[in-house]
Design a protein around this nucleic acid. Structure first.
Lengths: 341, 341
DNA sequence: CTGTTAGCGCTTTCAA
DNA sequence: TTGAAAGCGCTAACAG
């Protein structure tokens, strides 16, 4: 029988077998040692570790995962990396993963749920232990794949809908409501809203709805809107603030879809000589660092993105098997009074 | 012979074999179809694809990678996600990867080269096609692993040292030099420097050195320094600017270690009533969005982080095998005059 | 405490 | 154009 199969491998290719051969033990012994299972004699372990070092052996996790049917990979699906809140979530993920041997694989959807479907399918092919995914807005196919895969699924950022498995985040509706109540309590009566496209950002819409409810409860309403087509950004916030000011002069507070937009608003006011908060007040959302460092700290509502990523991973490490009932983890929020409202 | 091995699997577990059985073809045929190799009859393909859809079959990439000895994974090692420049690099990576079937696996080192070593070892265990890694500052062990692994290695961000395999970035030394020349040309003579800890940010140091060289060539020097212990941030930039102003009053321009720091400087000036650029000028580094949107656009040097990620991947996809000689790809930079200097 | 053995689910020759 | 068979490098059940 000729030795068919495969071209000569270009790489050195040190395998478990090599180590076992050289150390004169069986492959399983080496395998046990590499996974520090404790049922190995110290002398053997020492002998094997020596050859491991000598050979520079690195276990092949692909083979390991296949054999154990367990990849120790965690898929993370987020809309984008350009909005700093998502990198912050991932920092929390990395933090919680630090002492485990799991690794995160990150995909971005660019706010496109069809692309999200492609990403999820791609991740599922790696048989991850879990998928973390931002939001609840998925295609039917995505939802079905996620559901049938049997892996743990954590929907991140908001908890305003029923999760497939676990949801970790805060109620954006309540956040909007809290902002409304806070501003009313501070004496504001004439509200404006500066926002960005809701189509891709359902959570901004939820906050808006919450805000409106709170105002309605006090017999108030939003008297002027300035809403951009595209995504949120400092520049957009600046432009739309100019629009708002041009449209309506009786607004005493403007609520922004988020801090990026609000910082833009602050910059417009600085340029236009509008005094904060006397001429007009500004209120943001998120509690980004940049807002805290403005000449006047931005009034905002702090969400805890880092904690969302961290809690999500902790929940998964704690119980790797899916529970019978969905779980909701509320990471809460906090009003930061600041100096602009 | 009893059928030992493994507990009953909880998941549906649809494999290639199932599909082959149901479609009444061999496993290899299904395999060929799933990888759209073209040597399959249309009728067969159609029949198989139908069962694939019916069963909701998703190929197991772990098994595929093991069999083909090719994981189609790309490891990315960066210091952090909290500095927006790194997510921007990753966006470029994702962009270039979009139409391929490669996936990026991201690890962060938190600016710790020992942790970097652990991350690299972990990534190498997945037999990636390439490793992208920020900077040139690695442990000996990291360097050796990278070198011996035989995978392509792209060192990102700067091109001021000799790469292991490929380097993609810009010369930070030249950037610092260009900043110096630009500011001298604009008539500035009394330079201050506001920076953060160089230990973790070798590139900031390179820029500083370049700046000093340019000044020296004009018979000038940096007359005052304000350098923080920790990492860069807007808040730190603000604090150190205050220090600088308290220390020295004859500075007419302050060069910052980066835009975050410089924005902090602008905020201090706004608070303290220092008029930009007349009382003092400010010059940053990076060209972040926030700087462009300030009431006065920040004078800075634009680096192209997105392009660094994109070019890195393109280089790898173009030639998956390591070349004989190291390759350097310069993504360049551009002075943005702005209004603060 | 250690070895033997039978796969994990797929790809890749080679032969038909 | 298709199929059979031999692994990829490792883990896990079982036996010793």
């Amino acid at each position: 029988m000729t030795t068919r199969r495969r071209l000569p491998d270009r790489k050195s290719k040190i395998t478990l077998r090599e180590v076992a051969l050289r150390a004169d033990v069986s492959e399983s012994t080496v395998s046990r040692i590499m996974r520090n299972q404790s049922l190995v004699a110290d002398a053997t372990r020492e002998k094997v570790m020596e050859t491991v070092r000598a050979l520079g052996y690195v276990p092949n996790r692909i083979a390991g995962s296949l054999a154990s049917l367990n990849s120790h990979l965690i898929g993370v699906v987020i809309p984008s990396l350009s909005n700093i809140v998502f990198p912050e979530v991932i920092q929390g993920v990395h933090e919680a993963l630090k002492s485990s041997d799991f690794q995160a694989v990150i995909s971005t959807t660019e706010y496109d749920i069809d692309r999200e479907e492609v990403m999820v399918r791609g991740l599922l092919a790696w048989k991850p232990a879990a998928i973390l995914i931002a939001g609840f807005d998925h295609t039917m196919a995505t939802r079905r794949m996620l559901d049938q895969s049997g892996v743990r699924v954590v929907e991140l950022m908001d908890i305003d809908s029923a999760p497939i498995d676990i949801a970790v985040g805060m109620s954006h509706r309540k956040a909007g409501h809290a902002i409304g109540q806070h501003l009313i309590a501070r004496g504001y009566r004439h509200f404006g809203y500066v926002g960005h496209d809701w189509a891709a950002d359902r959570r901004a819409r939820l906050r808006y709805d919450g805000l409106r409810e709170a105002l309605a409860e006090a017999g108030l309403s939003i008297e002027a809107h300035a809403i951009a087509d595209g995504p949120s950004s400092v520049g957009t916030g600046r432009d739309q603030t100019k629009n708002l000011c041009a449209t309506s002069s009786k607004i005493d507070v403007a609520v922004y879809s988020n801090d990026d937009m609000a910082v833009g608003g602050v910059f417009h006011c600085l340029s236009a000589g509008i005094s904060l908060p006397d001429d007009m007040a500004i209120f943001g959302f998120n509690g980004l660092e940049i807002g805290r460092e403005l000449p006047q700290p931005l009034s905002t509502l702090r969400s805890n993105r880092f904690m969302i990523g961290k809690k999500a991973i902790e929940a998964i490490l704690e119980s790797p098997e899916r529970c019978t009932r969905p779980v909701v983890i509320d990471t809460g929020f906090e009003i930061f009074s600041g100096a602009t409202a």
